[in-house]
Design a protein around this nucleic acid. Structure first.
Lengths: 250, 250
DNA sequence: AGCTCCAAGGTTTCGCACAGCTTGGCTGGC
DNA sequence: GCCAGCCAAGCTGTGCGAAACCTTGGAGCT
């Protein structure tokens, strides 16, 4: 029985953003789980960035010297040195370099707080790629690695999202979203007019270790519609057998 | 008339795409079902691409080294290594190489997680050749293997199709198509002014294991006409005993 | 007390078989 | 050479089964 199958994806996120000043952004990823660092490398390369990975602290420090990254993604839990030590050595070479820490959810929060004192940021595992990339982007914006541009403001039709303040408005009217709803909407808004398959959405918006039913996507689309399209001209459309798409009305 | 033989495929598609830089695109197909990989090889060669096939993971990795493909079509279920392991080894040699995965539909939601995250894509079996080729093309476009050139826009007369947004318009007016209608129209539009037989269409647009009546093609042509030729100068023409052709008016 | 997600039932849409109808072309009788 | 008649090829309306999608309620977690 031939099943129509377009079900899967059509093509991931929009075209890579322009490099900071002609050269691509260089990102160093430090994590000892090779699966994770490879996944990350993939996603970040897809953003158009240059990526190097290191599996332990010493390698990271050595690599940083020759690779000279603009930003570092650093797991605080490493086999050899601990995050703090790696940070110190990195900063010894490049005092200004912004760092995005990865920490286990249950990790002691106050230590991380100490680490991020300098304007850095952190993300707890497991995270979604969409969130990690957004954080990284925001971090680079704040620290001037890339021009701020009007990047933190997403606009599709009369729908706007401020990524920093997390404010969302439709026709000026503020809308309250939960964390997951926000991520999903951000992903849609970053790819306006482009059909996104459920698989793509899952891969990108849900945590990398999510093992659940694929219909959470339908569920959250349904939530979003209630909040965003309620009583208005709909912006979120279903393309049966293909995916979802957000489009300005008209 | 029983099932149409897949081997009959002549699956023509317009002139081969522009090679990356003067040389033809090289595609590596990895699948252990020889019937399928041969079918694929045939279709891809017809696109003007150079194709090599491998039946298992190790061979694939070895072959990749000397063949140096621009893109890989990879079944996730292989006799020796599994898809992810092959991916890892491939990426070890060529970190940027885009991969199109093939997965069985019923295979309990093959944890495809992360596979599309890096800009890769996947297609579930059984698929249609048209679908697979379109995906491959889109993948190469996104990852810069070929110049985007005539990006994702297909144009025949006043009829346009955007493959990313799946928007179709005739004379500016938007037209809603179902998944199958879309595939069929895409195939026609990729081959303007060229007569396509029902057998070709069946082989190319329907899943390779389709076992139904041959008159689905007539049926869907009829649907398409209602949607795109309705009340206008017709663009889809029947050549009795030969097939169908799409042509700009005039 | 809110958020996330599973389960399950309900709804819509699509794909396709079937069958009767139309069209076009061929043949043979005149 | 012309027309009637016939047949194959193509067209399309109808209907059913099932896939795809939507929604609700509630359980578990934080």
């Amino acid at each position: 029985m031939p099943t129509m199958l377009i079900a899967a994806s059509t093509g991931p996120t929009q075209a890579p953003p322009p490099p900071p000043d002609g050269n691509p952004v260089r990102v160093l990823v430090v994590d000892d789980e090779s699966t994770l660092s490879e996944l990350l490398a993939l996603a970040l390369r897809y953003e158009g960035w240059q990526v190097q990975t290191a599996a332990d602290g010493r390698t990271a420090v050595r690599l940083a010297r020759q690779f000279d990254p603009h930003v570092v993604v650093l797991d605080v839990m490493l086999p050899d040195l601990d995050g703090l030590e790696v940070l110190r050595r990195l900063r010894g070479q490049a005092p200004q370099i912004p760092v995005l820490f990865l920490t286990a959810r249950d990790a002691v929060e106050d230590r991380v707080a100490g680490l991020t004192a300098g304007g850095d940021d952190y993300v707890t595992k497991p995270f979604s790629l969409e969130e990690l990339v957004a954080r990284l982007r925001s971090l680079m914006r704040r620290t001037g690695v890339v021009q701020p541009r009007s990047d933190a403001q997403l606009v599709v039709g009369d729908l706007t999202m401020d990524e920093d303040s997390r404010e969302v408005r439709r026709a000026g009217e503020p809308i309250q979203l939960t964390a997951t709803e926000f991520e999903l909407l951000r992903f849609l808004m970053r790819n306006p007019r482009r059909v996104l398959s459920k698989a793509q959405i899952l891969d990108r918006v849900w945590n990398y270790d999510f093992g659940g039913q694929a219909n959470v996507v339908e569920l959250y689309i349904s939530y979003l519609r209630k909040k965003i399209d309620a009583g208005r001209e709909p912006m979120i459309h279903t393309l049966r057998g293909a995916g979802y798409v957000i489009r300005p009305v008209g």
